[in-house]
Write a protein that binds this DNA or RNA. Structure first.
Lengths: 338, 338
DNA sequence: CTGAAAGCGCTTACAG
DNA sequence: CTGAAAGCGCTTACAG
């Protein structure tokens, strides 16, 4: 009445028997083939093919105490994940880069506190060798101390505020990027340049605003600074605010493209033209910069590159190298809005 | 010169020693606490807290030959993943449902053939206990035979064409949904109802067209059937086609909301009004149905529910229950376009 | 270059 | 209810 006994998966013992060598030798060819004679190696290879042997990942992990996997920890709501194409680009880039080393990506979504606790448990529990940290809001990073304490290698996307020394990171050069955008707007002859800054608990939001202030120098007018949450609607709202406080604004540097798109809507709704009356510069070079009229002049964040470097640094950290930090330049992309 | 020896993680032996019991007893409380006296149980619990013990997942997996994780295999390009909010909803739903059982989701993206091979290796290699299959294009599912043969439990989102009997699935009722939409358009007094069907190598594309044909019965006019790829642009193109072939169309049932949005653009570009001149019915109830003017009347696919049921069925299959299939009704959502 | 052996940290019949 | 023991499938010094 029972099913025929499921044929057991072949183990390293079966391979050894078929190849006529010891288990140790099989293991050696499995783990790189060093210190194995060509003959033995060939016999083992043939035996593996013949038996259809596949290494048991759990046994290997137990013996080596390496998980051979890496987590992608996203501390954002799911809405944001799929709203913000930056996350998508990072996820793809990381997954692709990891695939080259044959390392699977375990996606951990931790939008709320319960999920974060679970994710921390998982990460510090030995399931993965390292973690790619992706989240903008630093306020949400209560788990950083634990991960850092547990000694699990981690690389953050963007500066992990408060943990710059303990956790490696890869960040776009927000400061220089913001400066460059302001200079560009100035080069267009604009002088009353406002800004819509992103959330001030994010390194990007903070640093881009700092870059703006730095470049504006004595021309900074506090009433020309407004804040948003990186969402479309917040950009629209902030722009209205700015225009009420100072109708003479002739340019605005917006902390990301999505808010810039919202800002353009607000500007146009007052009968002003972009870029003739008000030039708009964004940040990211996300699809939002292209979807709509006019297209948005922006500072491109090289997310493919960033994700690759994150993987490279993480793998290095897992191999025992000291954690490193890296800043990657942004690039001005001129389009219609400025 | 070397770091102080990293304190080794406590093992079950340490707990046993501290608790004054045997390893077996510790394991018993770890695995459910059956057949353990209250005293022993309390001692073990205390010892676990004292030592900070955490179970080693690899050792446990080796001993039980269960991975305690599940894969989410997405055979779509990354573009589609983040274009199509349905995937996002599924991913979130599955992740959340799985979290309740404390089972992590391993995200496997396999857009091209190389990635699919890698993913198949991974899945059949024993890394996961089961897999959630998400992809629309059945043409891309060359790995289905392998997974099925390897005996790894799998549940598909949508009918796995050609594997209906071997792989469980959860699907929205595309046939009845399409019928209902056609009936609804008819109830509006429309009689020259065209359709833009999705890809015919997807169960949704196929079945919704079948539902349309069935409900239209003798009123089917082949020139009123066009095809798209579920993308915005394809809907626009297909609608232009339809209008050229038959300018008198007074309604159109579109295979998904994204194409419906494109179709509306096409209709409006010819000077016709939606819904006055042509009523448009979509499918999915995705954000595309809301983003734009007019909002789209559509058949809602309950993706949260679908993902939950997928997880439930998969967990059951992992527990040895026979694979099951499940069809979930869609729901008409009336908005402005029809 | 190769084999024998110990060890990775757990679980699970088996006796008792 | 509990302990001793075998076993899960690999890797890795250690001798040779």
């Amino acid at each position: 009445m029972t099913l025929p006994p499921a044929k057991k998966r072949p183990t390293i013992n079966d391979v050894a028997r078929v190849a006529g060598v010891s288990r140790g030798t099989v293991s050696r060819v499995l783990t790189g083939g060093h210190w194995v004679s060509p003959d033995a190696s060939a016999a083992v290879t043939a035996a593996i093919a013949e038996t259809g042997y596949r290494v048991n990942p759990h046994a290997r992990s137990l013996a080596t105490s390496k998980a051979n996997s890496v987590a992608f920890l996203l501390t954002e709501s799911y809405e944001r994940l799929f709203d913000d194409p930056n996350f998508a680009t990072l996820l793809r880039g990381a997954s692709t880069a990891l695939a080259k080393s044959d390392i699977p990506l375990v996606l951990l979504m931790a939008g709320n506190e319960a999920e974060q606790r679970r994710a921390t448990e998982f990460i510090t529990g030995g399931h993965v060798d390292g973690v790619l940290l992706v989240s903008s809001h630093q306020g949400k990073q209560d788990f950083l101390p634990e991960i850092s304490k547990a000694g699990v290698p981690a690389i953050s996307c963007g500066i992990p505020l408060g943990f710059e020394r303990k956790i490696g990171y890869v960040s776009a050069d927000d400061f220089a990027g913001a400066q460059e955008m302001v200079r560009y707007l100035q080069s267009l002859g604009r002088s009353r340049i406002a800004t819509i800054a992103g959330p001030q608990d994010t390194s990007g939001g903070l640093t881009r605003l700092r870059g703006y202030r730095d470049e504006m120098g004595d021309d900074v007018v506090e009433s020309r600074i407004a804040y948003g949450d990186y969402g479309l609607a917040s950009g629209e709202r902030a722009m209205h605010e700015l225009l009420e406080r100072d109708p003479d604004i002739d340019a605005v540097f917006v902390g990301n493209d999505l808010m810039a798109r919202g800002a353009i809507t607000a500007i146009q709704s007052t009968g002003r033209r972009v870029p003739e009356d008000i030039a708009v510069g964004g940040f990211d070079d996300s699809p939002a910069a292209l979807d709509g009229t006019p297209t948005i002049t922006t500072m491109r964040q090289p997310f493919e590159r960033i994700s690759q470097e994150m993987v490279r640094l993480l793998l290095a950290a897992i191999d025992g190298e000291a954690t490193a930090a890296m800043t990657i330049p942004t690039q001005l992309v001129r389009r219609e809005s400025a």
